[in-house]
Design a protein around this nucleic acid. Structure first.
Lengths: 107, 107
DNA sequence: GGGTTATATAACGATCGTGGTATGTTAGAT
DNA sequence: ATCTAACATACCACGATCGTTATATAACCC
């Protein structure tokens, strides 16, 4: 089975993930949108499924694929130790100051 | 040239990135720490360099590799449209409330 | 200059994932 | 019961990348 980062390494798979962001879609819908053959679409969805990115719901012959947050969240957590490199804050201090300023402006 | 996600797909490359998090290291240091051959280490560093993850500073025969934030930041930005899926907040409202609560506690 | 240290690159073989084609499976429709 | 629609899977071949080994480059030391 492919790791989370390996799954995301392929542009077409990130594309699928992106198109499922706003709601579930069927294999046929995705294949059409992406201009892929049905078997190839199914295969990528299989990879996404095995790695936890999507789950399937059966509906007659249709298969509705739905995005799951966990793997994406893992990527987010992996990034955490590096965020200080581009987020100019001292241990969330910046966020707090921003929030306070926003509150002031709302008055 | 490999894309950012392709670069991160390999565990050993994420490992290198991780070990450079706290400061620059030489090829030899990394090779020893990771238990890799020198040529392999150099090759991975080459990939990391081409994709912008690291930059090199020459120092006699030594090459100091330093981590750069940009590609990691790109991953972070790619994740942005998905964060609502696991961050329980309504358009940053949660962050603000957290910050306000923290401020209250500090009093 | 000769030797050594540190690193980069070339060449090669092997592995693995990708994409295509063909086929299997299941459910609905007539 | 048969036909069709929607999807999954098996098989195969190509291509890319990974790791190894050998070699090249460059700078320091004696």
């Amino acid at each position: 089975m492919l790791s989370i980062f390996e799954v995301l390494a392929l542009p077409v798979r990130r594309d699928i993930v992106g198109r499922l962001r706003l709601g579930p879609k069927t294999v046929g819908e995705l294949a059409t949108e992406l201009g892929l053959s049905q078997p190839l679409t199914s295969k990528h969805l299989r990879v996404l499924r095995d790695s936890g990115f999507v789950r399937v719901r059966a509906d007659a012959q249709r298969r509705w694929y739905e995005l799951r947050p966990e793997p994406l969240r893992e990527v987010d957590e992996w990034l955490e130790p590096y965020r200080w490199m581009w987020e100019d804050r001292l241990d969330r201090l910046g966020d707090r100051l921003d929030a306070i300023r926003d509150e002031e402006e709302d008055r």
